[in-house]
Computed example of a mutant assay.
Amino acid sequence: MANVTLGGTPVETIGNLPKIGDKAPKFKLTNTDLEDKTNTDFEGNRLVLNIFPSVDTGTCAQSIRTFNEKAGQLENTKVLCISKDLPFAMARFCGAEDIDNVVSLSDYKTGKFGNDYGLTFTTGAFETLLSRCIVVVDTDGTVLHTEQVPEIADEPNYKAALDALK
């Protein structure tokens, strides 16, 4: 399990992120049209998984904005913004913010994504939500980069995630 903090208070996750060089776990998530999306829907693309607790927090919203800005410049790459938010909340936010370069996905139905990727909180105020993480995956499903943000309120290292794609 990973140890991170929420406002300086230690919290734990269910496990650890996939290791660099391993195959990324398969997933099934729900998009804003309430359609199931799996990793096979994105085959042949590099993926940046921008994972966070909720779009309704400032840091999470900023990570979506930042990756939306950068995503249009990335060749053969999809940015997937993943949380346990209801798809309606993600659609509302993206519509209001003119976010159109990322794919919003939710783990609200089963929580399997968070468990399989080892990033569901098991303690603290955000228990059962997803920890703030970045996972970068190559076109063949190999993990190129991971980041478990140590303090939930902090933004991820965007540069390191994008540099993994070079």
Rank of each mutant, 00 (worst) to 15 (best):
A71D: 10
S63F: 00
T77Y: 05
Q73E: 15
C60S: 15
I64Y: 00
I64L: 03
F67C: 06
E69P: 00
E69M: 05
A71P: 08
C81P: 03
S63E: 15
I64S: 00
K70C: 05
N76M: 01
L80S: 04
T57G: 04
E75Y: 00
I64T: 13
F52G: 07
N50W: 03
S83E: 01
L47S: 07
K78A: 02
P53I: 08
T59N: 12
G58N: 13
K78H: 13
K70P: 03
E75D: 15
G72T: 04
L74Y: 13
G72M: 01
I82N: 04
S54F: 12
V79S: 09
E75P: 00
G58A: 14
G58V: 02
R46N: 14
V55H: 04
S83Y: 00
A71I: 00
K70D: 14
T66S: 10
R65D: 13
V55N: 12
S83F: 00
D85W: 01
L74A: 10
K84V: 15
D56S: 11
S63G: 13
A61K: 14
C60A: 14
T57V: 02
N50Q: 06
L47M: 06
T57K: 02
L49Y: 06
K70Q: 15
L49R: 03
R65E: 13
N50P: 02
N50F: 04
L86P: 01
L49F: 14
S54H: 08
N76Q: 14
L80T: 11
T57D: 09
D85Q: 04
A71S: 14
N76G: 05
I82G: 07
D56G: 09
N50H: 06
D85E: 08
T57E: 05
F52M: 10
I51E: 14
K84H: 07
Q62E: 15
L86Q: 10
E75A: 03
E69D: 15
L47H: 09
N68V: 10
G58H: 07
L86K: 07
V48K: 07
V79G: 12
R46D: 05
Q73C: 02
T66K: 14
S63A: 13
E75Q: 07
N76R: 03
F67Q: 07
A61R: 11
I51N: 08
L80N: 01
T77Q: 01
K78N: 05
L47R: 03
L74M: 09
D85V: 02
F67M: 11
K84M: 15
